[in-house]
Nucleic acid binder design. Structure first.
Lengths: 108, 108
DNA sequence: TGGTTATTTGGCTAAATTACCAAATACTTG
DNA sequence: CAAGTATTTGGTAATTTAGCCAAATAACCA
């Protein structure tokens, strides 16, 4: 594994890392319905504004969202829509596990 | 955000977390070519066997890989193939960022 | 300008993650 | 059974992440 390839995997991992938190997944999900300001997302998540702001900064740094300042407020949008496809597969993983556990229980 | 919904987002986040490490992405990528034993994956990654074993345990716990013991060795396979689709979108994010930076440089 | 609202940043603490080594386990083979 | 190989598990130290509060910025409005 040369360092060039490793760097590529690190860049990829950074994007997964950005998605790897419940609050940030809630944000991505919410932004799929359109642009939202920090205040709306904060209300939805129910954490401190500063915490939500840091989650947003992280998503932005990973290239997943864009921000736009309008007067007092900052509005965030999804920058790359395909991240929404992630959810389908994640659901598949969860369902596969659930089915497997059901099978195990049937054998009891 | 009720606790039921939050639990779902946490379950999803767990899967992203499992993918959020370069070594684990290398593993997933390698397993797309078929079953591999711990020793092969360890050689590929170049970390301590115990470290790789823990990465594999984490992937298994997230429901992304399966393991199968054969004699002395343990072979791992992808359990849910759609995780490979993740890579396409991750590439899109990286390319979008690269293009944007190119645009910024052109303006200089 | 002075006060108010929205957002970000800095600082700190607690919790989670990662890596390695050493030891335990499991299986094979002589 | 003893020795050897493959893998997992336990323990520990270093690093990263997450959350909150307080303070700094930025933009609005009276």
């Amino acid at each position: 594994m040369d360092s060039k390839k490793l760097a590529l995997y690190e860049a990829r991992a950074k994007i997964f890392k950005a998605m790897a938190h419940p609050s940030r997944l809630i944000i991505v999900d919410e932004l799929s319905h359109g642009e939202k300001c920090v205040c709306e997302l904060t209300a939805l998540i129910g954490a401190d504004v500063s915490t939500v702001s840091k989650h947003l900064a992280l998503l932005k740094n990973a290239g997943i969202v864009n921000d736009r300042k309008h007067g007092n407020q900052v509005f965030y949008t999804l920058r790359v829509l395909c991240v929404l496809n992630f959810f389908n597969c994640v659901e598949t993983v969860l369902k596969t596990t659930a089915k497997e556990q059901l099978q195990l229980l049937k054998k009891v």
